[in-house]
Simulated scan of single mutants.
Amino acid sequence: MPALAQTVSILPERQDFSSEADRARLSKTALKAYKRLVGQWGLTGLQAAALLDVSTSTWERLKQDGKDKALSQDQLTRISALVGIYKGLHLLFADDMADRWPRLDNRGPLFGRLSPIDSMVKGGIPQMLDVRRYVDAVRGGL
């Protein structure tokens, strides 16, 4: 049993965004990355707000002065999933296609004939994680 305890103790701790200190530390960088992703994907303010699950007025405030605001665990999870999708798409496609793909209608069963963006707005975090797994699988990451 001692060998097992040693093995478990050397595994890296998984980031879960539950700690207020971690959220405060990560929020500025996460928000900066999300704002860049919104621009690269050409999202409307309504889409950007919906993906983050905030009102459009809250999204506008976050864009302007959200640097000092700690995002919620839910918001950080959403941004993490979306940044993972962004990165996976840029490994899979040329930049132009990688940035257009999230807005294109998709006939795949995961998307229900919606664009990945619309499917993630509709399906929330579970759909975002499914889309991330899908992109990773397509590029051979799973």
Rank of each mutant, 00 (worst) to 15 (best):
Q64E: 08
L114E: 15
Y34E: 08
D105V: 11
D99M: 09
Q6E: 05
V8A: 12
Q6V: 06
S19N: 15
L82D: 01
S18R: 13
F17V: 04
M120W: 04
L46K: 11
S19W: 10
D99G: 02
L37F: 10
S19I: 03
P126F: 07
S57W: 01
G124K: 04
S72Y: 06
N106Y: 05
A21S: 14
S80N: 15
L51Q: 04
Q127W: 02
Q64T: 08
R78L: 04
D65C: 09
L92V: 01
F111V: 07
L142R: 15
A94D: 14
Q47C: 04
A30Q: 01
D118C: 00
I117C: 04
L91T: 07
D130Q: 15
V38A: 07
D99K: 02
G45S: 08
L52P: 01
D16H: 13
E60I: 02
R113T: 12
T7D: 04
D118T: 03
T58I: 12
L76E: 00
G141S: 10
A49C: 09
L31P: 11
D105K: 15
T56N: 05
S57E: 11
S55Y: 05
L82W: 05
A3W: 01
K69N: 14
D65Y: 07
Q6S: 11
D95I: 06
D136A: 15
M1E: 01
T7L: 13
D16C: 08
A21W: 02
L43E: 08
L26T: 03
I85E: 09
A137S: 12
D53P: 07
T56I: 04
R139T: 06
V54R: 03
S55N: 11
A50S: 08
D130P: 13
A24R: 15
D53A: 15
F111C: 12
L46R: 11
G124N: 12
T77K: 11
T77N: 11
A48S: 13
A94F: 01
R23C: 03
K67T: 13
M1V: 01
R78T: 00
L62Y: 07
D53H: 13
Q127C: 00
I117W: 06
L110H: 03
F111D: 01
D99S: 12
I117H: 07
D105C: 10
I117Q: 10
V121E: 00
Y86P: 00
D16P: 09
R14K: 15
I85G: 08
Q47G: 10
M120S: 04
V138L: 13
K28A: 14
L71T: 07
L62M: 01
D95R: 09
L71F: 08
K32C: 09
D16M: 11
D136Y: 06
G66P: 02
Y86H: 14
P116A: 10
L37T: 04
F93Y: 13
V138E: 06
A24F: 15
W41S: 06
I10K: 15
L89R: 12
S27F: 10
L26C: 07
L26Y: 02
G140E: 09
A5M: 01
S27Y: 13
L82Y: 00
L142P: 15
W59S: 07
I125D: 05
G123V: 08
L104N: 09
R14N: 14
W59E: 02
I10F: 10
Y34S: 08
P12G: 12
A3I: 03
L91P: 05
L92Q: 13
R139I: 06
K32N: 13
P2E: 07
R36T: 14
A137Q: 14
L92E: 12
A137P: 06
M120Y: 04
